[in-house]
């Protein structure tokens, strides 16, 4: 997905810089994964560092069923404000389901049933009185596959303002430029704002989708494997972008890629078969996880 305009400087990355030191042995041992597979409840190992963070999103005892099959089991997860939190785990562990539950996109499936709650800034997400549309306006979402709308780049970016009825041209222009700049896409797109977004390359499309999400000024940015459909160069750009968003935006990112999680996130949550197994600072998870299972997973021994 390389275009001539994309600089090559940051393309090859040195993998797993942080893992240079020898790994200390995990503090706890036990066959938790087998217990999870048997359907037993296993407590989440949450690191102490998280207690010091202000949580913007709190997941509190959240269960989710697709029909009769339970996909999420008693999730407790506090997403700290202004930080990047990564959800990792093998396929089918419920990472994406959890992410889509945050902005209630799972509501669209009529077989989904939930218990427990989530809170955004202390306000419930799943209370019956909550206006789902209002709720979603507070969150931006970037999907696994770049999904620009079949309209111009400009209209894509300002979509969230359009649906709110904003017509002031100056406001729209300004938001468009700022969002594209924040998504590191302005220089490439500024001369072709009126062109169809479908003509962009995959990496460009994904940065456009991020710009579109940013334009809505969300409290939380949800990213569902944003780089899985991209080549390494485009991936590098998106990762740089996530780095740049850190501090201003709270980012919750689902990823399959261990290096990506280790490079971009501040905190990492490891999930397995619908349960949150271990949750802590990324540095800790990747260098000295409390659980042997986490260590096995991040070192690639299974999954």
């Amino acid at each position: 997905m390389t275009t001539a305009s994309e600089p090559m400087a940051d393309a090859p990355r040195e993998p797993a810089r942080r893992h240079a030191t020898p790994r200390p042995a995990p503090a706890l041992r036990g066959d938790r994964l087998a217990a999870i597979a048997r359907g037993e409840a296993v407590p989440t190992e949450t690191h102490r560092e998280l207690a010091g963070e202000r949580a913007i999103l709190e997941v509190d005892g959240f269960n989710l069923w697709y029909g009769t099959k339970q996909a999420l089991h008693d999730i407790h997860l506090d997403v700290p404000f202004g930080k990047v939190t990564a959800l990792v785990g093998p396929s089918g562990c419920g990472k994406s389901t959890l992410l889509r539950s945050v902005n209630r996109l799972n509501d669209l499936l009529d077989t989904v049933r939930i218990t427990g709650d989530m809170r955004l800034d202390g306000a419930s997400i799943y209370h019956p009185s909550v206006d789902v549309i209002q709720l979603r306006k507070r969150m931006g979402m970037v999907f696994q596959k770049p999904n620009p709308f079949p309209m111009s780049i400009y209209e894509n970016v300002v979509y969230s303002l359009r649906i709110d009825g904003v017509r002031d041209r100056r406001v729209l222009d300004e938001v468009c430029e700022r969002s594209l700049q924040a998504a590191a896409f302005w220089d490439e797109a500024k001369d072709r704002l009126k062109e169809s977004a479908l003509g962009l390359s995959g990496g460009q499309q994904q940065r456009l989708c991020i710009a579109r999400a940013i334009a809505a000024e969300p409290d939380v940015l949800l990213m569902d494997e944003p780089c899985s459909a991209l080549d390494p160069i485009a991936t590098g750009k998106i990762e740089d972008l996530i780095d740049a968003l850190k501090g201003e935006y709270t980012v919750l990112i689902v990823t399959h890629n261990m290096q990506q999680a280790s490079r971009t996130s501040d905190y990492t949550a490891f999930m397995y078969l619908g349960r949150l197994v271990e949750y802590g600072p990324t540095e800790a998870i990747f260098t000295r996880p409390h659980l042997a299972e986490t260590n096995d997973y991040i070192t690639g021994r299974f999954g």
């Binding site: 902005n103 669209l108 979603r136 306006k137 931006g140 979402m141 999904n147 979509y159 969230s160 999400a213």
Partner: peptide
Amino acid sequence: PEHLRSASLGAGATPWQ
């Protein structure tokens, strides 16, 4: 494709929008 609907709904649009 469903992902277009998801993108729009995820951006806070109503089903009608």
